[in-house]
Design a protein around this nucleic acid. Structure first.
Lengths: 349, 349
DNA sequence: GTTCGCATTGACAGCGCTGTCAATGACTTG
DNA sequence: CAAGTCATTGACAGCGCTGTCAATGCGAAC
């Protein structure tokens, strides 16, 4: 053994490694940072010294010297639908861990008088290099404008208005909603209600468009009376269902733009003594945990949120590392999940 | 205006502040770190310079120089029951933000062959100073032992075996479960089933004890036949309910140790064509989102998780800052929430 | 008036790394 | 063989802050 004591807990510094490998610290730095101009033999020597000493670069020193914090921020709306965030979190975290980045959280509680101030504070204080921005925040004008002004790279998940210069990851909500609606039509439903999602959320318009497309394809007339505005939360779904069911000619099926609202529909139906799916078919969107735990379990659409978030964070980090990245060409695929909240229209008379 | 250009984005350094205030950088450092030996007049001068220049200390430099990362880790089990984590997250984040700390996440996906390695990696790599450890991880022998060996301060939320040298925050699960069971007894129920929580979770034993206490107080015999082991997840609740309802003399009410399992009970009851609460009363625990969205909405217990987490993180940070902190003397109070999943026992014959 | 003690302040040396730029060495070319 | 080219390596100066320790000033005690 060449020198003093073994490092017990990765406390070795770059100097120790340099000494052990018989090179300068700069060369160790080159190896650690994967720079190309190092002879293979030298690289090997350094790598084995690193392994032996269990060397981990000191992040603070790296940041202080190199101006790169290796920190990515996740700015999200701290409200309903935490299952969505759970997936976003897991996906982002995976990408960060794989690339030696850490993820910092910045929940935004709406309504917030000054989102811009909060985000600015976050960016400067937490010194993140880039931001993962899941819907619906990507569409908040204040947030988007500020981030752009701060010139901080952003990766948006399911943004309403994708910006070509930013990283965007989304899935084919529209097509999936269309499939879902077509499924109902095939089951014999003709009067199909629709509850729109939050207007600020990019997916809302796409899902609504999918619904209309399904009607059109099957030659069914679109009726604005069967459409209600919701906000992706349980209560708005319940209210919308109440209005829809109060109609003189109520729908025999309701498409809710997400599961929380579908849960509200189910709740409202129960309060009215209706039996789902016998008296009313209901579908949701997202396949959140609640979807399979309600009674009846919801027919819905599963989105690959984890993968979308992982992709967004990965591309973001690659971009931060100077690579020329591009948003995925194709949106991610959603999957329709048929459960028990839907049934063929009971023939009457 | 004394010198060159205004700082646009808090890019001022300690040198700028020192110059502006006419003191040495060390004095600025003292003010920033709230050290006591600075004359009031000097402090004021420095503070106003800081305000003027919008000075923010550089975290990397502080860490490199001072050995303090101002980072706290949240190590959690990345599985079911994300609503619990949501509250833990929000509470911890609040405390961190208030004290200038950042929170780093370390999800642990069970079963994991080597939790210890993952945690060690996290601690050394992410260089967190302390760890918030929500149940049930506080009870994982491997994790606990390692953290102790690493001599890293821990704040446990609802640990099974609180360690006096660590920070512990919990609530009176037992008393709340007792109230809940007594409520059922007062409604006329005599055969009350109980579904235990995950054996590794500290709250499980407390809740079970509360149930037994309620029986005892009302002179009801305890019957092991009416007790089933669950694991805090929907499926185990459903399975347990199935067994309970298959009994020759099934219970008229079931106490599930958390809402997810209660949801499983409700689901199972539905599948059997039972109507809750007419045929069966059900109660849960936690008041998670799902509790109020099921049909019928669940009678349950609300825990102040956000506050508990906030307290845990706050005490942890205070401890890291050298203060002599103490775990709260009293457990936090839970609140029974009566909804519609419970009803008086229908008198028969 | 002198000395001591205490409160306040500052000079200076790093913390562990990366950026810059110069030095070295190995080859190639004329 | 000398000069030029390129790949590889190292010396050195910070990055912005805090810890250590010494210097300063001031009132109290002698």
């Amino acid at each position: 053994m060449p020198s003093g004591s073994e490092s017990p807990l990765g406390k070795a510094t770059i100097f120790d490694v340099a000494e052990q490998a018989g090179v300068s610290i700069k060369t160790v730095s080159r190896v650690v940072n994967n720079e190309s101009n190092v002879r293979d033999a030298t690289r090997e020597k350094v790598l084995s010294a690193i392994r032996e000493l269990r060397y981990k670069p000191n992040a603070a020193a790296r940041e202080l010297s190199g101006k790169r914090s290796r920190l990515v921020g996740l700015v999200y709306e701290n409200a309903q639908e935490f299952n969505y965030l759970k997936d976003v979190l897991n996906g982002s975290l995976d990408a960060c861990e794989a690339r030696g980045y850490a993820l910092l959280l910045c929940p935004i509680t709406l309504p917030n008088p000054d989102i811009a101030a909060r985000i600015r504070e976050f960016v400067t204080q937490a010194r993140v290099e880039g931001i993962v921005l899941p819907a619906p925040l990507g569409d908040l004008a204040a947030a988007a404008a500020l981030l752009r002004q701060l010139r901080i790279p952003v990766a948006a998940i399911a943004p309403k208005d994708p910006r070509p210069e930013e990283i965007n990851v989304s899935c084919n909500d529209g097509a999936a909603t269309c499939s879902l609606a077509e499924y109902l039509i095939e089951q014999g439903h003709r009067a199909i209600g629709f509850i729109k999602g939050h207007p600020g959320h990019g997916a809302s318009a796409a899902r609504f468009a999918g619904y209309r497309r399904a009607l059109q394809r099957h030659g069914l007339a679109f009726s604005a009376a069967l459409v209600r505005q919701g906000y992706f939360d349980f209560d708005s779904g319940k209210t919308a269902a109440s209005e829809l069911l109060d109609l003189a000619k109520p729908p025999s099926a309701i498409v809710a733009s997400n599961d929380d609202m579908a849960a509200g529909v189910l709740f409202e139906a129960r309060e009215r003594g209706l039996t789902v799916p016998r008296d009313l078919s209901v579908v949701g969107f997202d396949d959140t945990q609640i979807a399979s735990r309600m009674w009846p379990p919801l027919t819905t659409v599963r989105q690959p949120i984890v993968q979308m978030a992982e992709t967004a964070a990965r591309l973001l980090i690659d971009k931060l590392n100077g690579e020329a990245v591009q948003s995925p060409d194709e949106p991610f695929e959603c999957e329709v999940v048929i459960r028990k909240s839907t049934a063929p229209l009971a023939s009457i008379t």
